[in-house]
Design a protein around this nucleic acid. Sequence first.
DNA 1: CGTCTTTGACCCGCGC
DNA 2: GCGCGGGTCAAAGACG
Length: 524
Amino acid sequence: MSDFDGNFIEMTSYWAPPSSPSPRTILAMLEQTDNGMNPISEIFPQTNTSRDHDTDQSGQRSGLRERLAARIGFSLPTLDTENMSPLDAFFRSSTVPNSPVVAISPGFSPSALLQSPNMVSDSSQIIPPSPATNYGPPEMVETSGEDNAMTMAFNNDFPYQPYNVDLPPLEVFDDIPTEESFYIPSYEPDVDPIGTPLVASFESELGDIDPIGTPLVASFESELGDVDPIGTPFVASFESELGDDAHIDIISIEDSESENENKDEDDEDYQFDYEDEDQDVYLDEEEEEDEDNVALDDDAQPSAPKRRRFDQASNNIGATRTSKTQRVILQMETDEDNPNDGYRWRKYGQKVVKGNPNPRSYYKCTNNECKVKKHVERGADNNKLVVTTYDGIHNHPSPPARRNNTGGRNRSAGTTMPQNQMDRTSRLARDHPPPSRTPVEMRPFSSMAPQVDLTQVYMSGISKLPNIPVYQLNPGFMYRNDEPMMNVMPDGSDVYPMMNVMPDGSDVYGGIMNRLFVKFGVDI
DNA sequence: CGTCTTTGACCCGCGC
DNA sequence: GCGCGGGTCAAAGACG
């Protein structure tokens, strides 16, 4: 398959630190903060939320952010909303400041950033990757404000969009300079803020890449209609009624093999295509043979081996991961739970993971043809912090609406965790009941998502984010009720008020429906 | 009755 | 080799 496969080595090697410590190793290091060893709060003093509390916790505990940081190989600095530079500083700048961090001020959607002229799909407008960015840190797009915040960090194996050719080496992770971060100021339009969709998409360019340490370029497309026909969409939308304090972070988006291609296996867990041995840079020949054997013996031995490979792959985020899946880690800080991402999920497991009394719930997409999984957990120290990790790419549009109350316990989008569940399920968390969950109405999407090669993180529910200019995607694509999209911003230099497409227009959803498409084109 | 959750057991990779 | 930990399975149960 492909360009992507052919470049997988570059992808993995690109961001992997030289020493490539395993996530566990990193986690173990992080857990030594109680001993005064480089607490992550010191490394990233600007990082907010629960981390600061972790050192006060048991030594066995590590905050969710820490664990995420360990997984993704870096930590998320907190948005410095006080130092936002003007909006046009971004749009006018031909090159992005010397930082992988992109911070977006309150009210500004990353979609504007992602769809800025600097990030359009046109390869001519993509900043050429540089070997100097081999170990560049992940990208982050963060919005924040009094009431909401969003952070996106694009890292790991995912193609890296170098904002400039002089990104710092990995070692500077411990000193992500917020002052060098690229801030996008708040944009407070005069238009009605209700229901303005925000759309962002970005697509990786996995084509001609310098084989030596050249990061894969994540380009940002504004035209979903012109996408790589190969691949499948991953769409995650969040329609929950996030409260005013909603805080959403896309911690990590890592891209790798699309697993939904022509694989025709019964085991839905077995998502990876190992046909191209060149891709399996971390697998030796024997392992690959074993894997093939397992695939052949799928019916006879339906259980572990294949799943294990998947698990292994998907678990190894960062330097050691061998995953060929696409993973999006999305973090929300909100009282509301259960963000409806537009897909139906079946919960297949729950586990209390180390360092977090709150259990992690595992979900699979209910679509038989879809192998996308996700797991949801709340922060160890901040029950308002909900981290959803998506693995895989949906190969289907978001399902139609379901009738309410058609059986089952909970018809929410899949993250519901009844209050009493913990008491019965979580062996290690019986004393730590989760916060109450608010079921969220299943909201259908009028997704007409074609079988395109992209990954989209489709978020909404970020209340109070004002309208922002974005480019037009496919009209009606992924938009509720097929409402038209916002105006096209032809050159990115002007601010176009967008249409308010929130159908209900209720106060509850006022300002919601800011949406984000994250698109990764993976040429398979 | 259909759909979904619950939950103990199991598997397997990794670290020691 | 062993234990830990994360992820998954699948039967049973719950819900409307």
